[in-house]
Amino acid sequence: MRIMYINNFGGGFADHIEIEEGTTVSKLFAQKIPDGRPEDYLIRVNRLPASRDQILKEGDRITITPTKIEGAAA
């Protein structure tokens, strides 16, 4: 099954990926950001806030954006 996965963290990633049927939001999150805590991220599926146990469907667009990102000085 193919979905659009956007990770607005690290180097940034936005592309189509293959996932297994029945993959939930929390399972994908654990695969992609194993050291992260879901509560520290804004997770949207098809631009809508998603619950952890929401099952992803073919063609879905999932966006994971950290709620806090460290800035710097010049």
Binding site: G11, R47, E70, A73, A74
Partner: peptide, 24 residues
Amino acid sequence: CLGDATAPLRKATTEHRLADAFQI
């Protein structure tokens, strides 16, 4: 000064993902 957000914001603006850019 974007710090850790430099790369993801650059990617978001290059791909014209406006909502992501604002959220970052």
